[in-house]
Amino acid sequence: MDSRLTHLEANIVKYAAEISRGNPCCVLFLLDQSGSMGDPWGGETPGKKADGVADIINRWLQNLCIKCAKEEGVRDYFHVGVIGYGAQVGPAFGGNLAGRELAPVSEIATNPARVENRTKKVSDGAGGLVEQSVKFPVWFDPQANGGTPMCQALGEARRLALSWVVDKYPTCFPPIVINITDGESTDGDPSAAAEAVRSVATSDGEVLLFNLHVSSNQSAPVTFPANDAGLPDQFARLLFSMSSPLPGHMAAAARQEGHQVGDGARGFGFNADAVATIKFLDVGTRPSNLR
């Protein structure tokens, strides 16, 4: 009987729940805002790591709002939070959303802290480039001071995920937690806190905890490894061990993006530059089944 149960359990498809307005998905960013995030990103990425990562998440939020927009308005397929950790640990949204731990995407769309006018170079259709003014909504600003209280941030993530799952959506696609950091935890070994996050589960699977290490190092980024054999140090191996395996549809998306993704690949990136960070977020937040 036991073996039959095990066999049946093994055949239950996880990470396949439909994401809908009635059963939305929670995406939570844990964003390292320690002093070292004020260092240059280096390589071909100008500016500080904190500025670059803030731009990338603001643009990700912008794209999410567009993705969820329909004729009648924005459909709340997702609720999103950004928890910063550095000198303080807490919600990072500015403007009307200040203090909000999670906000539905319709509220995010209509409440940027401000809309900046930026320029981007686009093709002029004759082989040249011209500058074009584009609107750039900003929901939160970069910060870089203090230590790296990763354990505390993971504790916040567990609290929010637990409340989401137990109080609201026990059958939803599991919450996705993306931890973006450039350094080692300064409030202890985060392994147990990470395990506590991953142990929160809906009927569709455990919370997905993905870790992305951003770096000024010029070494090539390592993304979605299946084991820790090629990782350079103890710190990288620690973040790898904290990371969830990629569900099948995300692994397929990563392969489609040109990543070498083996069986058992984890949602982990090391030495990421701006391009690798954007690709990582694209894969790690890819819905499998949006209604």
């Binding site: 912008q62 709002c65 567009i66 927009a69 004729e71 308005g73 924005v74 909504p137």
Partner: peptide, 11 residues
Amino acid sequence: LPWFAEEKARQ
């Protein structure tokens, strides 16, 4: 249209 709907329609 608001900014997000305008961009969506542009696509």
